[in-house]
Every structure is written in C-alpha cells, then in structure tokens.
Computed example of a mutant assay.
Amino acid sequence: MVNDARHAPGARGASVKDVAASAGVSLGTVSNVLNRPDRVSAATRERVERAMAELGFVRNESARALRAGQSRTLAYVMLDASNPFFTDVAQGIEHAAEASDLSLFICNSDNRTIREEKHLAHLQQQRVAGILITPVDPEAAHLDAIARHGTPVVIVDRIRHDESFCSVAVDDVLGGRLAVEHLVDRGHTRVAFVGGPLSIGQVHDRYEGARAAWTDAGLPEDDLVVVPTEALTVAEGRSAGERLAGIPTMRRPTGAFCANDLLALGLLQQSIGAGRRVSEDLAIVGYDDIEFAAAAAVPLTSVRQPRQLLGKMAAELVLDEASNQAHAHQQVTFTPELVARASTQR
C-alpha cells in the first residue's frame, strides 16, 4: 500500500499524475481507464484501478463537466423547502434522475428573487444537464436568459403566458373551485379563504377558483371572507384562527378553505386548542394533500395534487429537451382531486 504524506487526511487529493506514477503507466493510460476502459487491457486496468483505490483518487467530475460542456446532474430550484409539497415534488424528480443515472442538486429560493437568481447563476457555472424550477415569477427575464444560454429549463407547479418553456402544473383554479363547492354542498353559507400573499401565483389561482364557485352558488360576495396571511405556514394558520375567532358569532365563517395544508393544519390546531369543534363549529379544507393531512388530529379534507408525478414528468421533459433535437415544448396540466375527510363531515 502506498504510504505518502501527500495523501494523508487533510492533504490535497491524489491526482491523475499520482495514479500514473503509482501504477507505472502513462497519463494517457490513466485517462483511458477513466474514459475509454475498453481500450486498456484487463491487467493494466486492474493495476490502475488498484492504484486509484490505494491513493484515494476521486474523479473530478466538475472539471470533466467543464471540458465536456455538461454534467451528469439535474437541479431543482424549489420555492419553499419548509413545505413538504416541494420535497415530495423533489422526490419525483430524484426517481426520474436515478433512472437516467443522474444526480440531483436541490436549491431553495425561499420565495426570494435574488436568491433564485444566485442559484441559477451557480447552476449554470456547474454546467448542469437541466434545471427544474418553481419560480418566484414564471415570467421573469432571468429564466429566458438561462434558456438562451442553452440550458434546458422546465417550470414546475407554475405556468407562463407563452409556450417558450416546458411546464408541469396543476389546475389550481379548478382546485379552488372544488374546495369551495365542497363546503357549499355541506351547507356552509359563510366561508373564509385563508391564504397569502396573493402575489404567489398558486394562491391567486386558488382564490380565483374559490371566488368563481362562490359566485356560481349565488351567495353574497361579502360572505366569502378573505383572511390574508404573510406566508403559507403553520404559524400563519394559527394566527388566522385567532383572527377568525375574533369575528362576531353571527358573522363568523363556519367553513374555511386554506391555500395550502400547512395553513389548514395551523388553523385546525388553533381551533382545537381554543375549544372549537372541527368540523361542527368550523369545517376546514386544505390544499396539496401532504402526508400530514390524513394524520392530523382531525383528518384533514384536502385538494390533492399528484406531487411526485409532477416532479417525475418535469424531469422527463427536461431530459428530453437535453437529448432530443426534435424536442417540442409541452405544457402539462394535471387535474386536482378533492379528498374528503373528517374535517368537513357534518
């Protein structure tokens, strides 16, 4: 075994030159073992591989990607890492990446444009094979700039007004409609929409669907009460519950549609803690149908999105764009499904 202080822990990694010297071969032979092993005899290849193992040699894939112009890596820039919806989407992407022998970088923009732009710049420098992104703004000019530089981009859980990118999303307007129609069908004539900011595309679309269903039911506009939130979190859901509790009983909504499940779980938690009965005093509908929804103290009715399928389809589209010269952009829209549970039973 080679005993060289140059390769002690904390020292620089072994180089191709070190491997060649240890194996007694040329640099070209080591390069062939790494990139064209069929050109090297079995005995020589075994000697080089043994030297690599003894020296702790690790292939520099970043440098190789720069030379080749592309890496064996996809990247997903998610909007909010604290939301299980996006981690489920990432899992779907990971499954597709693994099937193609690719790795996956995961970045979190935290719903901040500046952070998103920095991630995208770094990913371009890494020459990733493709970028999947749930953007802060799907119309942002920096997305067009990435595509112009030749990196395939697929928009996830959002849509653009043009067809210049592939996109994979769910019909959130329909999802909002399904949630409110469900509450109306159960006799609720005063309903709260809990969510925000409305500048988030998904929140806006879900509210538009809710409002359309309310109007179609012929109910007074003022009886669909908007309870705005600063974020889509459990804490904001609890805060919304406190505000709802402060509305006079005669005007207080008996049903609530929350823009995502985290808000709904926070509202449910606050309601139970305050002694209100779910769903007798307040029926609650969430959105996304994350795993925690069915496991809540009162199982949560929710609008289901095919989270992992969203990710898998998006990854397949970005891989097709990266490898298929005849690739045509597609805008894939999935249909949401309402899953009724105890939080809306009467």
Score class of each variant (00 low, 15 high):
residue 165 F to H: 04
residue 134 T to S: 12
residue 165 F to T: 01
residue 174 L to I: 11
residue 185 D to F: 08
residue 112 R to D: 15
residue 136 V to C: 07
residue 150 G to F: 02
residue 113 T to W: 02
residue 108 N to C: 09
residue 117 E to V: 11
residue 177 R to E: 14
residue 165 F to K: 03
residue 117 E to N: 09
residue 149 H to K: 15
residue 119 H to M: 00
residue 115 R to I: 15
residue 114 I to H: 10
residue 181 E to C: 07
residue 150 G to K: 09
residue 130 G to N: 08
residue 161 H to D: 13
residue 116 E to Q: 12
residue 144 D to S: 14
residue 134 T to D: 05
residue 145 A to D: 11
residue 185 D to T: 13
residue 113 T to D: 07
residue 143 L to M: 13
residue 157 D to V: 12
residue 185 D to I: 00
residue 167 S to P: 03
residue 137 D to C: 09
residue 144 D to K: 07
residue 119 H to S: 06
residue 152 P to W: 01
residue 116 E to W: 07
residue 143 L to C: 09
residue 133 I to C: 02
residue 179 A to H: 04
residue 159 I to Y: 02
residue 118 K to R: 14
residue 165 F to Q: 05
residue 179 A to N: 08
residue 132 L to K: 01
residue 148 R to N: 09
residue 180 V to K: 01
residue 114 I to Y: 11
residue 148 R to A: 10
residue 112 R to P: 02
residue 123 L to R: 04
residue 163 E to D: 15
residue 123 L to H: 08
residue 175 G to S: 09
residue 180 V to T: 10
residue 155 I to L: 12
residue 114 I to G: 06
residue 126 Q to H: 15
residue 156 V to Q: 05
residue 110 D to P: 03
residue 173 V to C: 06
residue 149 H to R: 15
residue 115 R to S: 14
residue 177 R to L: 00
residue 184 V to S: 04
residue 123 L to C: 04
residue 136 V to T: 14
residue 121 A to G: 09
residue 135 P to K: 12
residue 153 V to L: 03
residue 159 I to N: 05
residue 162 D to R: 09
residue 114 I to F: 10
residue 180 V to S: 07
residue 162 D to E: 08
residue 132 L to V: 09
residue 146 I to Y: 05
residue 163 E to R: 13
residue 167 S to I: 02
residue 115 R to H: 13
residue 151 T to K: 05
residue 111 N to C: 12
residue 156 V to L: 04
residue 155 I to E: 01
residue 142 H to W: 14
residue 185 D to N: 15
residue 173 V to N: 10
residue 181 E to W: 03
residue 169 A to M: 07
residue 174 L to H: 07
residue 154 V to W: 02
residue 161 H to R: 14
residue 122 H to A: 13
residue 186 R to L: 08
residue 151 T to I: 11
residue 174 L to G: 05
residue 119 H to F: 15
residue 159 I to T: 12
residue 128 V to G: 00
residue 128 V to K: 01
residue 138 P to S: 10
residue 127 R to C: 10
residue 166 C to Y: 04
